[in-house]
């Protein structure tokens, strides 16, 4: 079976031109893959490069060396080299990314934010609307908030809008960066359930969860990122 996502000898560093060209190594020699139905959780302390790996897979960070293969139907695409238009198309159909923070769009209601993400992900208008309502209800976002822009919501409420936005469409590859950081236990359980449903439907997840309860509830495998640190000085 072809993996949904494969890192092949990936390296990443940051060159700080404003600091005299100092090079900050992040990771090196990263090889890992995510198969359908698998939830691979990245472990290791802050600063080990976990988020950078997710951002590279999403095309948000450049990749200095190696390849990052993402399966798109019958083909695989190296997102480390992909043209911006190819990357945008992958993001709309294949790759979902949920970060800790909701980048707020002024004046757009929570329900519309989620619905728009569904339409961008290929759902019909009716389907997007129906799923948005179901998801926000399952995530216990009070219905009186649905018609309001999320800018004024609490951190946990914004995070639930963000999760709904990331999970509404049927994208086969999910990149989850601490999506439950400011949620209480019962809402974390809802997110775990949603993730397990995606896995059962054949999606693959590469995620970061500091909360051990969440990790235990969804992880099929844990990869310790510190082992990619040794190579990074090279």
């Amino acid at each position: 079976m072809t993996a949904l996502l494969t890192f092949q000898d990936v390296a990443k560093s940051f060159t700080l031109h404003l600091r005299g060209g100092v090079v900050l190594p992040v990771v090196g020699g990263v090889s890992l893959s995510v198969a359908p139905g698998e939830c691979v959780v990245l472990g290791g302390p802050s600063g080990a490069g976990k988020s950078s790996l997710l951002k590279m897979a999403y095309g948000n960070y450049r990749c200095d060396a190696g390849a990052i293969w993402v399966r798109d139907g019958e083909t695989v695409i190296d997102v480390a080299r992909a043209d911006p238009r190819v990357m945008l198309s992958l993001r709309s159909r294949v790759i979902a990314y949920v970060s800790q923070f909701l980048r707020v769009i002024p004046r757009v209601s929570a329900l519309d934010v989620v619905e728009a993400a569904g339409r961008e992900g290929g759902l019909s208008e009716d389907e997007a609307r129906a799923r948005a309502r179901t998801l926000l209800a399952r995530l216990n976002l009070p219905e009186r908030l649905w018609s309001l822009p999320p800018a004024t919501f609490s951190g946990g409420e914004q995070q639930r809008v963000n999760i709904a936005r990331g999970l509404i469409a049927d994208r086969p590859l999910l990149l989850l960066d601490e999506p439950t950081a400011s949620l209480d236990a019962s809402n974390r359980a809802v997110v775990a359930e949603l993730v397990r449903e995606k896995l059962a439907a054949g999606a693959g997840v590469l995620g970061i969860f500091h909360d051990s309860e969440m990790r235990d509830a969804v992880a099929t495998r844990i990869v310790d990122v510190t082992r990619f640190a040794q190579a990074r000085a090279a």
Partner: peptide, 12 residues
């Protein structure tokens, strides 16, 4: 890509 250029700019 807009987010890549703004989040991981390459040029000084």
């Amino acid at each position: 890509l807009t987010d890549r250029v703004l989040d991981d700019p390459e040029h000084a």
